[in-house]
Amino acid sequence: MSGIVSPAPTPAPERGALAHVGHVLRENPVTAVSFAMFAVIVLMAVLGPALVPYDPLATNAARALEPPSAAHWFGTDHLGRDVFSRVVVATRLDLTISVAAVALSFVIGATLGAIAGYRGGWVDAVLARVLDTIMAFPLFVLAMGIVAAMGNTIENIVYATAIINIPFYARVVRAEVNIRREAGFALAARLAGNSHARVLASHIVPNALPPMMVQVSLNMGWAILNAAGLSFIGLGVRPPTPEWGIMVAEGANYIVSGHWWVALFPGLWLMLAVFTFNLMGDGLRDIVDPRRRT
């Protein structure tokens, strides 16, 4: 093209996806630490039962309520079970519940929210009403009601947790899709011969991923807290199954007599897991956001 001055290229190295993940982790040490902690938690969930020193269900009346020692790192509970083994083994159950619940609500919420945000009109209005109704209940109370009504099982804990989290995803996605519905790149995609479904699925929704990732990480934390809270008040998981919420509940009875370790360690572990998920949010967002690639 004659007469056209081409602007000077600015230096910007191009990177692959893996290199980008590495870049994000190096850039932010907090993210790197949280990802490492997450890896440890996943390892505990997968290998936990094979690694622990004691059978988490084996009772030993002779060694009940022993404080932490070399033999029992986290002490023993009122039935003489090893608290450390129970805490580690419980990881799998707690993680499974929260991952399953978050995955369910993510898929359902994102689909509903994307359709409502893109179509608008009555679909949007109906969804808004349904979400309003769910959100009209204090969420933990609704989860209590659902589990009480559907039956006291682990699956129902998952469903209840999923249902109360759906509005969060649906709202985030609806808002993100709605602002991009008339964006230039969505219109350009239609001019390029894409159907509405395709514009939504391959152009708009991927751009809503970064804020959703923050939501996922927060929700993972809530989901664990929620499941543990339900077992704490006696719903869902039943003793003697090792689970953090139940263990804290059992330990609560001994705290006033000074046996702190029975409740403290499962509680700390629970906190650590939630903390890890919350910290991961920003890192996850940076990984799925191409604009962070510099």
Partner: peptide, 29 residues
């Protein structure tokens, strides 16, 4: 029948490279 949009920033998908953007109509149509 095609169109050039007002705001070049807004009209490019942030997740697509320049080549992807140009390729879109060529692939689809």
């Amino acid at each position: 029948i095609q169109m050039v949009f007002q705001d070049a920033t807004d009209s490019l998908n942030p997740r697509h490279t320049a080549a992807d953007a140009i390729a879109e109509p060529l692939r689809r149509i």
